[in-house]
Design a protein around this nucleic acid. Structure first.
Length: 282
DNA sequence: TGACAGGTACATG
DNA sequence: CATGTACCTGTC
């Protein structure tokens, strides 16, 4: 099926670092412009795969209407007007305006909580290609094998019960380093009901963040990423090394949180993308 | 060789 | 509360 989209760029989303199982199907040529016919992408979420292609503002998706409505429309935050967020940015703020020109097609996804939680524990002191590798090996070794309509074999993300039953030794092949013990401890808390992940969706941003930080390996930054990329609290503003650099270099008098009350997390993504990926384009 | 990669936990003053 | 440090692993 086809859909027309504004402020939506599948390549930018795949490189944005908020999801780790959205990747080009074929190895891409370097230097292809965003928003052009930049090949096909495959996304794996839960039990499903989805293939996407984009040419300009026209998106092709491998799913039918029913699945689109049931899963992907919400996943991509389709009905939110990102143009409105962008219009709210201070016209005098040359830095954020440039960031938007580079990454204005990024969406804040609504990803499954458990996958996002574990992935962002893995993300600490780590780089995106390696995070992707770690997540894939975790899925390959401990997820369940599936095959999609194209005959592509993939693996689901292992649930908390599955991971809780593992030992550090079992996890060693995933090369998670010191994060292994965090993941086991977190999985055990989730599996034993020491934390109610289901209930997290009903909490406010502050409550959810505080609750998440009870988990080993989850500090402020990771909790904010989970709030932003899974629970869709778009006011969450994760501060990592890139964002720290952005704040230091471009907002020495403080970031204008008041102006962007309620959606600062969207700007965080534009800033992060511009700092981490965009600067290579210049 | 050492610093760094979307940090966190724990120890000090 | 604020600062300092160890921590797995891979890459440049």
């Amino acid at each position: 099926m086809y859909r027309r989209a504004r402020n939506f760029d599948i390549g930018q989303i795949s490189r944005s670092g908020q999801c780790f199982r959205l990747n080009p199907v074929e190895k891409q040529e370097k230097g292809q412009a965003d928003g052009q016919a930049n090949g096909e992408y495959r996304l794996i979420v839960g039990e499903k795969t989805l293939y996407l292609r984009q040419g300009g503002d026209e998106i092709w998706l491998s799913c039918g209407e029913e699945e689109w409505e049931k899963i992907w429309r919400s996943y991509f935050d389709w009905d939110t007007d990102y143009g409105a967020f962008q219009d709210a940015v201070d016209p005098e703020d040359a830095y954020m305006q440039a960031a938007i020109r580079t990454g204005g097609g990024i969406r804040i996804l609504r990803q499954p909580l458990w996958e996002t939680l574990v992935s962002f524990i893995i993300s600490q002191q780590n780089n995106i290609p390696r995070i992707k590798g770690c997540v894939e090996s975790l899925c390959t070794l401990f997820g369940e094998e599936r095959i999609d309509s194209r005959g592509y074999v993939y693996h689901t993300f292992p649930d908390a019960g599955r991971l809780a039953a593992l030992s550090l030794e079992d996890l060693a092949p995933c090369r998670l380093g010191y994060r292994s013990r965090y993941i086991l401890a977190t999985a055990r808390m989730a599996a034993q009901g020491e934390i109610d992940l289901e209930a997290l969706g009903d909490l406010s941003y502050e409550e959810a963040r505080r609750e998440l930080m009870r988990l080993p390996g989850v500090g402020k930054k990771v909790a904010d990423c989970i709030c932003l990329f899974a629970l869709h609290h778009i006011e969450a503003f994760p501060v990592d090394t890139h964002i720290q650099a952005m704040l230091r270099e471009h907002y020495p008098d403080g970031f204008p949180f008041d102006r962007y009350k309620g959606f600062a997390g969207v700007l965080q993504q534009y800033g992060f993308y511009y700092e981490s990926f965009g600067r290579r384009l210049r």
